[in-house]
Every structure is written in C-alpha cells, then in structure tokens.
C-alpha cells in the first residue's frame, strides 16, 4: 500500500529482509504442503487451458510454465551443493544424473525411477517416473487421454538442460502406464517417460570431449 519509493517488483516484508537476504540453504530440507501444490497446479492448468487450440498447445504452455523454473533450479541447486561437488555438468551423463538425482530429490523427495538412452536415436534419452507427483490427483477426461500434465515437469527439465548449455529439441512427457496387453493389471498406471532430445551440436561437443578425455 505504501510503496515508499522502493524498487517495484521486489517486495519488502516488515522486517526488511527480502528473499535475497535469506540464507540459500535455509529452506533446503523444508517441506511444502502437497495439497497447496495440488490446488495451485489446478489453477495453473486452468490458466493454461484458456484459449488453447489443442492438447499439443496445452502441453506447450505447461512446458513454458516449467521452463523458467528449471533455469533457476539449476543455479540454486548448484549453489547449495557442497563446494567440492558444485561443478556445473559439462557432459551429458552427469547432467542427466543431476536431473534424475539432485533435481528429482529436491522437487519430489526421491530419485527418478530409470534413465535410458534410446536404442534407435543416439540423441534421445528417456527418463522414467513411475508415478509423477504432479499427476497424483489428476484424472484425465476421456477426450483428453493424450494429455500428460507432467509436461510441466518436462519444461523444468528443458530449463535445466538449456541453462547448463545443452540445447534440446524439446523435452516431452508421455504416459506409458497402460500396455496394450495388460489393461488394468499394470503396476504403475501413471508411469511417465520424459523424452529428452539433444541438438546436433551438443552431441558433436560430447564426442569431441569424449575423445579428449
């Protein structure tokens, strides 16, 4: 209400301590309410659903919502890492390990379930999550069964990859829970794969680095 000529955008709490004055590691192990996240995510999806043309468009928007988060999380998690291991990932494998372990632990309190390289496309990696936390309460209506709301998490991954200098041709989330054969018998109905496709130049660099080391 009384701005008092302070920088717009940055909010000053009554004790004058902004988010920049706080210790980086202070909220490291603090937990947040899952219900609060669920309700926020509901609103994020409703917001993204406005004026979209189709499911691909909606996923694109969710992806865009996650992207800046990924850029920032990369910096934050590296800043919080113990000094001797706080190296920015320069190779593909350490980057993916960082995502599957550090990032996943920070966001969901557990590591990702599997990490694979595509057999027919060397530039493609698959990261599996058996039960994505963001989809926990979401039931898709029948006409939108193609949608996977973990596109938001895909956006976070894309942000981390881009921020670390590994340009991608996009990261996408796909449901792989129900195999055509075993209808309801599958153990993880919400199983999701994140397809990470790196650009040519990233692979070239990887090859040069591989030869050098």
């Amino acid at each position: 209400m009384t701005a008092q000529g302070q920088t717009p955008g940055l909010r000053y709490p009554s004790n004058k301590k902004t988010i920049y004055d706080r210790n980086l590691s202070r909220s490291k192990n603090s937990e947040l309410s899952r219900a609060a996240f669920a309700y926020l995510f509901v609103e994020m999806i409703s917001y993204a659903q406005k004026r979209v043309k189709g499911i691909a468009d909606l996923e694109k928007r969710l992806n865009n919502q996650g992207y800046p988060l990924g850029l920032k999380l990369l910096e934050l998690l590296l800043a919080r890492a113990p000094p001797n291991s706080a190296l920015r990932p320069t190779r593909i494998l350490p980057l993916l390990q960082f995502i599957a372990q550090t990032l996943w632990r920070h966001l969901f309190n557990r590591p990702a379930d599997a990490l694979e390289r595509s057999e027919n496309d060397a530039s493609q990696y698959m990261l599996y999550d058996n039960d994505p936390m963001v989809n926990q309460y979401i039931s898709l209506p029948r006409e939108m069964s193609q949608l996977n709301c973990a596109a938001f998490v895909a956006g976070i991954i894309e942000g981390v990859c881009d921020g670390a200098g590994f340009a991608t041709q996009g990261v996408s989330a796909h449901s792989v829970g129900e195999e055509p054969g075993g209808e309801k018998g599958s153990m993880w109905p919400g199983k999701t794969v994140f397809l990470i496709k790196f650009r040519e130049e990233v692979l070239e660099r990887e090859e040069i680095l591989g030869r050098g080391g």
């Binding site: 219900a35 669920a38 509901v42 999806i45 309460y137 979401i138 039931s139 209506p141 029948r142 939108m144």
Partner: peptide, 16 residues
C-alpha cells in the same frame, strides 16, 4: 484437486 472437474457437475474421475 482434479483440474478437469467442474464443481457441481457429474463426477467422472478414474482415480476417484
């Protein structure tokens, strides 16, 4: 907590 449910409408939620 399902984003695709409209309040006061019939409930069609697989997980429910």
């Amino acid at each position: 907590k399902n984003p695709f449910y409209t309040v006061e409408m019939p409930i069609r939620c697989e997980k429910f």
